[in-house]
Design a protein around this nucleic acid. Structure first.
Length: 870
RNA sequence: GGGGAUGUAGCUCAGUUGGCUAGAGCGCUUGGCUGGCAGCCAAGAGGUCGUCGGUUCGAGCCCGAUCUUCUCCA
């Protein structure tokens, strides 16, 4: 059974059980500070379980793209070594939000596996929760009785809290779960060792395929459990493993989820899968990682050096490294796999098809840059090896190579071992540990428990209509970080404050206590659908009613920039073409930033056309049309662009200005005329195929133009109010260059004359040509003169004094042969004579300088110089 | 968010405790030689040593700030 069919049958099955089938949410998360990626099927539905949002459909099923790079089996460095763990994987799931519970979940799971997928029921094992005394939890008899209808008792296994009690985190919804395992070993092996003993034992052919979680408790901050008001079902089935079972394979990588990629890798790298363990691992690593990276980029997460982007970069680089070392690839090649991947999965995940070009470009660029890093590292490592005495390379050196130059440590180890050398790994680990501690210490944020004052289900955002309100604090907590010190997070029953999101910054403002005391709100953010206000202090009595107000000026400027962003987006698509897609956006009060896909630097004409386009729409004073809570389909029919990488609820808000229609939760001006003016201030590349425009609007453009005209008028004034300042400056530059040459020539002349004069003044004492003279020249000219004279006159001992700005300077030149023959030292000379001008100095034996505060001493020093000749 | 590195001629880079009149290779210009695959020889042009400030008689080098690029960690 083809993998596409496996997926479809799952969805069809649950559709027939009255489930709403929803598309996969993005793999990359944007509004959850506790999590960078969707790492399980339930993540998109988190807020339903937390009770922060009410589900529209009570039964839902989907397949969810997930990414895991840490955890017991998903440590990035381990993926690829076995045949059944992945970074990116799909999780099939069916959900009940306060609807059906254990019975239906178990019945349907069995029906699907045995009757639809036709898995031999004798291969299946199930586990049930055995209870836990510390939480006063009893044996899950209900699940056991339900399973007993289908499964003989000797294949029902009791599991402990670790395996069979699922918790979302330290706090929050939780409950017992029941796992379904499948044993796909041969009959022969089954006869030797019972499958039962291998369940939950990391056996590659006795694997868990489905976990059914029965959520009925809430774990409170103090560790105690309470019953949830509604019971939920959350299930997750590993798609790749399911395919392995249904296609009678022994490895996930032998299913058609991976084989097209593997065939392509074999073809490109001229290698063969299945003959050599090292090659196989490398191929598996690449096949796995390219999926993770391609999906992440399609979701809008580009590789970078921070946060989620860094995780993506690490995954991609690991793939490059395995290719480099074991498949001998010295040129980019992974980017070519994007085509295979989009052909294979693009039907169900259209973002792969639509973003194929971007994915290709980004991966290729990243491969090129990392191959450069590897090249550079190889050279540096060579240097380290040459400078190492003995056969052990210090861990510190290796760490520097890794930390500063990004050269992978396992490559270092490999190369060393090829040369019969070793690496001080303990020292390396110590250095790495030190760095981790340092980073952690800097990022540490201590979070206190929430103090709940009121339990008020849904918190309302009223900021579209008003900037002020009287509110209660429903909950608050303190957070401490090293950088910002103590801050308080406040949640109101309703709020006019816009939380950071959709690229727009959070509102600032204040909260006023009844006695008039004002507390400033410094930022507003969203966390799991909760709008959190950051304040430097806590009101004296948090239970009062407060007046809160948003900073109007900042809000207005931000709104101008946000609306301008929409118009800019429209302009780019209109002028550059529809391949332009938003890749990121930051809307601040002072400026806006817009990242988009495009493959060339924008020309001056294009930039001008874009500005004109936006300003024309500002000039025609287009009125805002806002649609709140309309079904997503209605919005798309109006012409709104559905952006991949954004997760939308069932109803959306659409913002329309003339022909610009976007799904957007942000704040906009009522009329484009409010923006006043739009000006692009910079354009550049941020990644392969992605460009960034920064622009300003409203007041900021006024300042921009005022400042520029000011500079311009100053320039023309300096240029005597010329009509053509550009030409004037070019003329000046040319004139300057020719004058410089003339001056140079003249100086040479002058120096020649001077040299002639000076030669005549040279005395000969004891065979040494001696000259001590006071000149009116700068330090550099004296130096030039000294060497010039030195070339012309043998055995020269030259002492020059000069005075500038009330300071005295002495320079001494002694021909090199004299230095050796007579043990003279110009440095010593100037140091000693320097005393006469109240200064000090030094230099080389044949040329040295000294400076001092007493110009009157120069004459005396020049006379005294003669003494060195005796 | 924290750390490390980096910026010197068009390109790739050297420049060890502050002082060798800022260098090398490639490239470029000019002239000469030459039946050869990176031709040879000679001469030459090309530098705000990232930027701003400081210390010093003297800074590419030391100190402070800032920007660029790379990199590791969270």
């Amino acid at each position: 059974m083809k993998s596409q069919l496996v997926r479809q049958q799952f969805l069809d099955f649950f559709a027939s059980k009255k489930h709403a089938i929803v598309p996969s949410s993005p793999m990359v998360l944007k509004n959850d500070p506790t999590l960078m990626f969707t790492n399980a099927g339930m993540v998109p539905f988190k807020e339903y379980f937390l009770g922060q949002k009410t589900a529209v459909d009570k039964r839902v099923a989907d397949t969810q793209k997930c990414l895991r790079v840490s955890g017991k089996h998903n440590d990035l460095e381990e993926v690829g070594k076995d045949t059944y763990h992945h970074t990116m994987f799909e999780m099939l799931g069916n959900w009940s939000f306060g609807d059906y519970f254990k019975k239906e979940a178990i019945d349907w799971a069995w029906e699907l596996l045995v009757e639809v997928y036709k898995i031999d029921k004798d291969c299946l094992y199930v586990s049930v929760f055995e209870g836990a005394e510390d939480d006063s939890l009893e044996y899950d008899q209900e699940a056991y009785d339900l399973w007993k209808k289908y499964v003989p008792e000797d294949r029902i296994i009791n599991g402990n809290k670790k395996d069979n009690f699922w918790e979302m985190g330290a706090q929050g919804p939780c409950g017992p779960c029941s796992e379904i395992h499948v044993d796909i070993r041969s009959a022969e092996e089954k006869a030797k060792v019972s499958g039962r003993s291998l369940v939950n034992n990391d056996h590659p052919q006795v694997v868990e395929i489905w976990n059914l979680v029965f959520m009925e408790f809430n774990r409170k901050a103090d560790g105690s459990l309470e019953k949830l008001p509604a019971k939920h079902v959350d299930t997750g089935m590993g798609f790749e493993r399911l395919c392995m079972v249904l296609q009678n394979k022994q490895s996930n990588y032998d299913t058609d989820v991976f084989t097209p990629l593997i065939r392509e890798i074999e073809a490109i790298t001229n290698s063969e899968y299945g003959n050599n363990e090292e090659t196989d691992i490398a191929i598996r690593v690449i096949a796995d990682h390219v999926r993770a990276v391609a999906f992440a980029i399609a979701d809008g997460q580009l590789p970078s050096n921070t946060g989620a982007g860094y995780v993506i970069r690490r995954i991609l680089r690991r793939a490059i490294r395995y290719g480099f070392t074991f498949l001998n690839t010295k040129e980019p090649f992974i980017y070519k796999l994007a085509t295979t991947l989009s052909q294979q999965m693009g039907d169900y995940f259209p973002e792969l098809k639509i973003q194929k070009q971007l994915v290709t470009n980004v991966i290729k660029e990243e491969e090129n840059s990392f191959l450069r890093t590897l090249d550079q590292g190889l050279v540096l490592l060579d240097g380290i090896i040459k400078n190492t005495e003995g056969t052990e390379v210090s861990g510190k050196k290796a760490f520097e190579l890794f930390d500063t130059f990004g050269f992978p440590i396992d490559l270092t180890a490999l190369i060393l071992s090829e040369k019969g050398m070793t690496l001080d790994e303990d020292e390396f680990k110590k250095e790495l540990e030190k760095q981790k501690t340092r980073s952690r210490a800097a990022a540490v944020v201590e979070t206190d428990d929430w103090v709940i004052l009121q339990d008020d289900g849904e918190k309302e955002f009223i900021g579209y209509d008003t900037l002020e309100a009287n509110v209660n604090i429903t909950q608050y907590r303190k957070i401490s970080s090293k950088k910002e010190g103590d801050l308080y997070q406040l949640v109101f029953n309703m709020t006019p404050f816009y939380p950071e999101g959709g690229g727009q910054v959070g509102d600032k403002g204040y909260l006023e206590e009844q006695d008039g005391n004002v507390i400033y709100i410094v930022d507003t953010k969203k966390e799991n659908n909760l709008i959190i206000h950051f304040a430097k202090s806590l009101p004296r009595d948090p239970t009062q009613i407060f007046k809160v107000a948003v900073d109007e000026k900042q809000r207005f400027r931000t709104a101008c920039n946000h609306t301008a962003t929409h118009l800019l987006h429209q302009a780019l698509r209109e002028i550059l073409g529809t391949h332009v897609e938003q890749k990121g956006s930051a809307v601040h009060s002072k400026y806006l930033r817009f990242d988009f896909s495009h493959f060339a630097k924008l020309t001056v004409d294009e930039l001008r056309a874009i500005e004109d386009f936006v300003n024309a729409r500002i000039a025609s004073k287009i009125v805002l049309e806002e649609y709140r809570n309309i079904p997503i389909k209605t919005a798309l029919d109006k012409g709104a662009m559905a952006l991949f990488g954004e997760k939308y609820g069932d109803t959306v808000r659409a913002i329309q200005f003339g022909k610009s229609v976007e799904l957007c939760g942000g704040i906009h001006v009522q009329n484009t005329g409010d923006i006043w003016h739009f000006k692009i201030v910079s354009e550049g590349a941020i990644a392969a195929g992605v460009r960034r425009i920064e622009a300003i609007t409203n007041d900021a453009t006024k300042d921009f133009f005022l400042e520029n005209t000011q500079i311009f008028s100053e320039v023309t004034e300096v240029l005597k109010n010329t009509k053509n300042p550009v030409k004037a400056i070019i003329d000046l530059q040319e004139e300057n260059a020719s004058l410089k040459k003339q001056v140079e020539a003249l100086q040479k002349d002058k120096a020649k004359n001077l040299t002639g004069d000076l030669i005549n003044q040279v005395e000969t004492i004891n065979g040494i040509h001696y000259l001590a003279v006071k000149l009116d020249l700068d330090q550099n000219s004296i130096k030039d003169l000294a060497f010039d004279l030195g070339n012309k006159i043998e055995n020269l001992f030259l002492l020059v004094g000069t005075e500038t700005d009330g300071k005295a300077f002495l320079s001494c030149y002694i021909a090199k042969n004299l230095v050796e023959a007579k043990h003279l030292d110009a440095g010593k000379v100037v140091r000693e004579l320097g005393k006469l001008i109240e200064g000090g100095g030094g230099g080389q034996a044949y040329f040295a300088t000294a400076g001092g505060k007493k110009p009157e001493g120069i004459e005396q020093a020049l006379i005294k110089g003669k003494e060195y000749l005796k």
